[in-house]
Computed example of a mutant assay.
Amino acid sequence: MLAVPAPAPDDRTGAGWAFEVKWDGVRCVVGTTGDGTVRLSARAGTDTTARYPELAPLGARLRGRDADLDGEVVVLDESGRPDFGLLQRRMGVGDPRRAAALARTWPVRLVLFDIMRLDGRSLLRVPYEERRGLLTGLGLGDGPHWSVPSHLAGRGGQAWQTTLDHGYEGVVAKRLSSPYTPGVRSPDWRKTRHLVTLDVVLGGWSEGRGGLGGLPGSVLVGVPEETGLRYAGAVGSGLSGDERRELARYFSVLARDTSPFAGPVDVAAPHWAEPRLVAEITFSGWTASGLVRQSVWHRLRPDLTRLD
């Protein structure tokens, strides 16, 4: 079952809703017939059991229970927050030795939040609130590599603020009375991301393709630090044609031969610019290497010339 992008209900309208953390990972269905083994499946149905050997002990905890569980695989950073960049190092690795080695360095955690079948009984028509109770009743607790986080019923404002304060990606709101509809993006589940606004310095650009030839396909942005201007990523989404042409005119005047960034910039054929322009972007978080994730251009800040 999939969620639709939509504003989350607030405290005034959220009486019939439950609120969960929006995890920055990949969906995973856990299937077991109760014999102590588990089969992990990706959203597309691909068998991913071999990728995450550290989840095998979950089978012993489910021994004797015939179940299908829904959840998300994540990798936590040093602060305990999901980091999709770290998870990417685990995805697609099916070789048992390689997967076992990666599990020691970047162990995954399986966050379980729904159940679709239990002891031969389909739960697809059972309301979310009751399914949640059955999931909790399995007694999986907080295992070495899995957990069943709690949800907040009717407290959308608290869920929003708590996930924002703790640096999570956002909130998923689920109607308490909703059935489980596999493969359907249902309005009974709503996902809302937190977006962070940031002022950045423009230090260059990379040329666009096709009709954007000669114009910025993306701008190279940085954040001032004590050691200099730290490269923070390339931003291209959200730029209009007029803005690209305007930036091209500015960059033609501000062109320089060397990078203004203090560290390396992994961009093919960059064009450098004097770091005098400031722009406002939105993004969903930082990667492990310090780059902005899911960044979107908002506007140029002509009222600012540097962030020093």
Rank of each mutant, 00 (worst) to 15 (best):
G71C: 10
G80C: 12
V74R: 05
G71I: 08
T46S: 12
F19P: 05
K22H: 12
R90L: 13
G36I: 05
C28A: 10
A6D: 10
P9Y: 04
E20V: 03
G31H: 13
R65Y: 14
L58P: 10
R104K: 11
V38T: 07
V38A: 03
V4F: 03
D70V: 12
F84S: 02
T13C: 13
G85D: 11
G64M: 12
L102N: 01
W17Q: 04
D70Y: 03
A100C: 09
R12G: 15
T13W: 06
A50M: 02
G31K: 12
L62V: 10
G36S: 01
D95L: 09
G85F: 05
A99H: 03
V38P: 01
L58R: 08
R43T: 12
L86R: 03
G85H: 08
A99P: 03
G36E: 02
G45V: 09
R97W: 15
V75H: 03
R61Y: 09
A8Q: 06
L40P: 05
Q88N: 15
R27V: 06
D24P: 04
T49Y: 02
L102H: 01
L40H: 03
A44G: 04
W17E: 07
L58K: 03
G14K: 01
R39W: 12
D68V: 15
V4L: 11
S79P: 00
R27S: 04
W23P: 05
D66S: 11
T32W: 11
D11M: 07
A8S: 14
R98N: 06
D24F: 07
S41Y: 07
P96Q: 08
G31D: 13
R39V: 15
G25V: 09
P7D: 13
D77G: 13
V21G: 06
G64D: 13
T46C: 00
A100I: 06
Q88D: 11
P53D: 00
A50N: 01
R65D: 14
A18R: 03
E54W: 06
A100R: 14
P5F: 10
R81M: 14
T46V: 11
D66M: 08
R63I: 10
D77W: 08
A100E: 15
R98H: 13
L55M: 02
A101S: 12
T48V: 13
L69K: 04
E20F: 07
E78T: 14
W17P: 04
R63T: 15
D47R: 00
G94C: 05
R104S: 11
C28G: 07
L40R: 03
A103Q: 02
A42D: 10
D68C: 04
V29T: 14
E72V: 07
P96F: 11
A101Q: 14
Q88E: 15
L58E: 09
G92C: 11
S41E: 14
T49M: 02
R39C: 13
D47Q: 02
R98I: 01
A60S: 11
G45F: 12
D68I: 11
T13V: 13
Y52R: 00
T49S: 07
V29K: 01
A103W: 04
L86W: 02
G94W: 11
L58W: 09
V29S: 13
V38N: 07
R51F: 01
L102M: 00
A3E: 08
